[in-house]
Simulated scan of single mutants.
Amino acid sequence: MNMDDDLDKALDAVGPRLRALRKQRETTLADLSAETGISVSTLSRLESGARRPTLELLLPLAKAHRVSLDELVDSPATGDPRINMRPTTHRGMNGMTSIPLTRRPGGIQAYKLVIPASSGRSEPDPKTHEGYEWMYILNGRLRLVLGEHDVILEPGEAVEFDTRVPHWFSAAGTEPVELLSLFGKQGERAHLRARPKAKN
């Protein structure tokens, strides 16, 4: 394989990576267009692979997604099964850091999420978007506001929900929360449920 083939392979991977980053940030094409000055149609064609990415387009997108240019164009080595885990910190989501654990575009995405300890000042601001999410708490305590429910999840507990229901989550207390998250487009469910607590 020559250098031109390597470049083509890397550029072909940019579209799915751009879509995954946007979905991860829960940002619409219209929002991203307003943030970068790139038209919605151009963004859509970039994500689908119909438009060849250029430096002029990738620079504002890298800035908007808060990743380096290398992260947009650097694809994992062919045949290497290891996941290239690069954490992303989301300033607008209680400072949450997400670490991707899968790299399959369009399917169920797995993340490890780390949410800093609560400052006590954050008020719930529920959002909605297309998809279905499953979470499993590893460490710490998570406060989840889901529709009319306001619950605290402990280590070892799991929850799944339709993300079209207004939802918001944050650390509950003075320690950070670590959790695993599976996120899929509507209809792709994890089929894993929390075991109900035994009643005393």
Rank of each mutant, 00 (worst) to 15 (best):
Y111N: 07
I108A: 14
F161T: 02
F161P: 04
G107F: 14
V114L: 10
E157P: 06
P100R: 06
Y111V: 08
P116E: 07
Q109H: 14
D162L: 04
W134N: 03
G106Y: 05
P105W: 09
Y132W: 11
P105N: 13
I108K: 12
G131P: 05
M135T: 10
E133I: 01
Y136C: 08
M93H: 05
A158P: 12
I108W: 08
E160R: 13
G95V: 07
V114R: 04
I99H: 03
D162W: 01
S122K: 07
G120C: 08
E157V: 04
G95H: 13
G147P: 01
G147R: 00
E130R: 14
A117C: 12
A158I: 10
M135R: 09
S98K: 05
Q109W: 05
G95D: 07
P100N: 11
V145D: 02
Y132I: 02
K112T: 06
S122I: 03
G106Q: 10
E133G: 04
P124Q: 12
M135Q: 10
K112A: 07
L142I: 02
V145F: 00
R164M: 03
R143Y: 02
L138A: 10
S119D: 15
V159A: 01
L142K: 07
R103A: 15
N94Y: 10
E157Q: 15
G156M: 04
D150Q: 09
R164D: 02
L153S: 11
N94G: 12
F161K: 01
I108F: 08
D125N: 15
P116A: 11
N94M: 14
G131K: 01
N94L: 13
P155V: 13
M135S: 11
S119K: 14
V151H: 05
S118R: 09
I137P: 01
K112Q: 14
I99K: 04
M93R: 10
Y132V: 00
E160F: 11
E148F: 02
H149G: 00
R121A: 15
M135G: 11
I99V: 15
T128E: 09
S98R: 02
S119L: 14
F161Y: 15
T163P: 06
G131D: 01
E130P: 06
L146F: 14
G120S: 11
I115Y: 06
Y132S: 03
N139H: 09
D150C: 12
S98P: 01
R141Y: 09
L142C: 05
E123A: 12
L138P: 06
P100K: 03
P155A: 13
T97M: 09
Y132G: 00
P100M: 09
E130C: 07
E160V: 13
M96S: 08
G95Q: 07
E123G: 02
E123D: 04
R103V: 06
R121N: 14
E130L: 12
P100Y: 04
E160S: 15
K127E: 00
P124C: 14
T128D: 02
H149D: 09
I115H: 05
P105D: 09
G140L: 10
G156W: 08
A158Y: 05
H149Y: 06
P116M: 10
M135W: 01
G106C: 09
E157K: 08
D162P: 05
